[in-house]
Structure formats: C-alpha cells, structure tokens
C-alpha cells in the first residue's frame, strides 16, 4: 500500500506518495525529479547515489524513502549557493576531476563529507575514504588532487 513520506530536501519541505519498498534514491529521482543523484549499481558499491542525510553522506540506494521520514536531505542540486559553485565543485572543475560526469555527484557529496570529518586529509586518507565511490574514467588521480584542493578551499 502506498504511504506518504515527508522530508526536507535542499532546504525545501517535500512530501510524496511511495510504495514501502521505494528506495530513497528512487524518491529523489522519480518523485522529486532531482536526477543529479545517479544509480550505477544494485549492490551499494558504486557510490553514484551519495547524498547527505542529516549531515552525513549516505548511499541513497541503501535506504528506503520511508526511513528518511522527517530527515534533512542534501543532494548535489543543493550544494551550489546563489549560482556559485561550492568550493569542492570548483576544485573538481579546476583539477579536471571528472570526465563523463556520472560518478561526479556522488564523488563530490562524499568528498564534502570527508572534509567535514577531516579538514586536511592526506592522499592516503582521501583514497581510503573513496573506497565506496567507483570512477571508471579518471583513474582517481585528478579526483584525489581535486579533493585535496577542495579541502584547502573549504578551510
């Protein structure tokens, strides 16, 4: 039976009717039409669906929409403010940290959460943190560079 969920997404109160089995990522993409959050696998491995739920990075394919009831969700669409890219987004651009762009929203959201937890991560710490985010284009080289630069810019 469909049920109603309500949450705050990118600062706006939203609600929608979902089946109990609906994943948070499906609610974000299909009900809210926020297609910046992607789906790249079915085993919670790839990290293209990473969003922030109550300030923490979460793979939105591993959570049911109903589990996010009342939560504060931030997606890639809500990261830039007043038309200005977030410093982490700017760093990805400056350091060519993306190619096809498909993993990028998850990478950026994950990176922002890393820097919240570790203001000055080493290369090793960045690589370790990205264990749950796959990229097939960049070989991670420029993503690691971008995150280090983004961390400095966020300080």
């Amino acid at each position: 039976m469909p049920t109603t969920v309500s949450m705050t997404v990118n600062g706006k109160k939203v609600s929608g009717s979902v089946e109990p089995r609906t994943l948070l990522v499906q609610f974000i993409r299909e009900t809210l039409g926020l297609t910046g959050t992607h789906v790249g696998c079915d085993t919670s491995q790839c990290g293209t669906c990473v969003v922030h739920v109550d300030g923490k990075s979460v793979k939105s394919c591993t959570m049911l929409a109903v589990q996010a009831e009342g939560s504060d969700v931030l997606t890639i669409e809500g990261l830039a403010k007043d038309g200005k890219l977030h410093p982490m987004q700017e760093a990805f651009r400056e350091h060519h940290g993306l190619q096809c762009g498909f993993c990028t929203p998850g990478m950026v959201m994950s990176a922002v959460d890393l820097v919240k937890n570790n203001k000055n991560p080493s290369e090793h710490e960045i690589r370790d943190w990205l264990e749950g985010n796959l990229c097939r284009c960049t070989g991670y080289h420029n993503i690691v560079k971008a995150i280090a630069a983004g961390a400095k810019a966020m300080a």
């Binding site: 993409r29 926020l34 297609t35 910046g36 959050t37 992607h38 789906v39 997606t75 890639i76 669409e77 990261l79 830039a80 890219l85 987004q89 990805f92 651009r93 400056e94 060519h96 993306l98 762009g101 498909f102 990028t104 929203p105 950026v108």
Partner: peptide, 19 residues
Amino acid sequence: VRRREDGRFLTGSGTYTDD
C-alpha cells in the same frame, strides 16, 4: 582550457538517458 561541460555535471544538471 577548463572544461565547459563541467558546470552541468557538477551541479547535477546533466541529462543522461535515464534522466
């Protein structure tokens, strides 16, 4: 030159087929 396509990809505004 920094990539001109990055703006849309970085802000979740790309249009992939499933979108």
